Simulated assay, not measured.
Amino acid sequence: MINLLQLFIQKYKKKLLLPVVVIGIILFISIQSFLKSATPQADSIPTIPLKENLTVEETIEYVEDPIVFVEVKGAVMKPGVYELSEGDRVLKAIEMAGGYIESSNSKHINHAERVKDEMVIYIPKEGEEVEESPLATNGSSQSSLVNINNADATVLTTLPGIGVAKAEAIIAHREQSGAFKDKQDLTKVTGIGQKTFEKLEPLITVK
């Protein structure tokens, strides 16, 4: 049997060569295709685009309170002009001026009032007559008027242009000539001219 097979192959080997090669190629391709289909493939993972991280910088503005200048006059330890922040209270201005002297009269002072630029805080003494509120602001209807008929030298020197000498001259004039009947009479005092009087007129009274 084997001999017959060998004789058959030898006789027809040239004719069988081509079909065998073709069949071999077909089998090889089939096996490769089978192996590829059998190999598990990882699912493609879609690419998720990264969102840009937007960094928002928060800008914190530190706004300082506006500066105001307030003048504290009268019965305080250290009369003068003081620098405060807008919104501060009258109490702070008085504390900066050293507080009250013993003879001060603070019952009409609103310590909780907020200060304003160019504000004048006048603290009267006991027994001193002061018209309206002792607090005044520039151009405000509230005013602190100094009564030149009964104010002492300390109070008079809080007026603009009035030093110790002129304050004593005012007191001497009213002691010699009597009380001032009109504010204009202040020009009769030695050393007080019309220009000085014009500065003093809105700040004084004779009542």
Rank of each mutant, 00 (worst) to 15 (best):
T190P: 13
V146D: 03
F8K: 10
T55N: 15
L91G: 03
S144M: 08
S133D: 08
R89Q: 05
V164P: 07
L159R: 04
T157D: 02
I67Q: 04
Y100F: 08
V20G: 12
I94P: 01
M1A: 14
N3T: 13
P49S: 13
L5K: 09
L135K: 02
K92Y: 07
T157G: 05
I192Y: 08
P19L: 13
K207T: 10
A112C: 00
E129D: 10
G161I: 04
S177H: 13
K207I: 10
E198D: 15
I45V: 15
V164T: 09
I2C: 02
I148S: 03
I2L: 14
S143C: 04
V70L: 02
I45T: 14
F28S: 12
G161T: 05
S37Y: 14
K11W: 09
F28N: 05
V63N: 10
L4S: 15
G193W: 07
L50S: 13
V115R: 00
K11Y: 13
Y62V: 12
S141C: 05
V206A: 09
I29Y: 07
Y12Q: 08
K188R: 12
S104Y: 01
V120D: 03
E71I: 00
E57W: 04
G74H: 04
M1V: 14
E168Y: 10
F197S: 06
Y100G: 00
L4M: 12
E64C: 00
K92T: 09
N110V: 00
G161S: 04
N3W: 08
I31M: 11
S30R: 07
E132L: 11
Y62W: 03
T39N: 09
N53Q: 14
P160R: 02
L4T: 12
N53L: 14
N53Y: 12
V70R: 00
I67M: 01
I45Y: 07
K51G: 08
K188W: 06
L5I: 15
K207E: 14
Y82D: 01
S177N: 12
H173V: 04
S104I: 02
Y122M: 08
L7Q: 15
Q10A: 10
S140E: 13
F197Y: 15
K199F: 06
T137A: 14
K199V: 11
I109G: 01
T187D: 03
V120A: 03
A179Q: 10
V120M: 03
S30Y: 11
K78Q: 08
N105D: 15
D182T: 10
F28I: 10
N105V: 05
K14E: 06
L186N: 07
M77F: 09
L186T: 05
T55S: 11
P66A: 04
S85F: 07
D117I: 03
G193C: 08
E83D: 10
E113W: 00
L203F: 02
F34W: 12
F69I: 07
K107T: 11
D88W: 01
L203M: 09
I25H: 01
F28E: 04
A42D: 11
E58H: 09
A75N: 05
R89S: 10
P46E: 10
E95W: 00
E201H: 09
N138E: 15
V155A: 14
G178D: 03
V22L: 14
Y62C: 02
N3H: 09
M77V: 12
A151W: 05
T196K: 14
V115N: 00
E86N: 09
Q32P: 02
I26N: 03
T137V: 12
T55I: 15
S140N: 12
L203Q: 08
I148P: 02
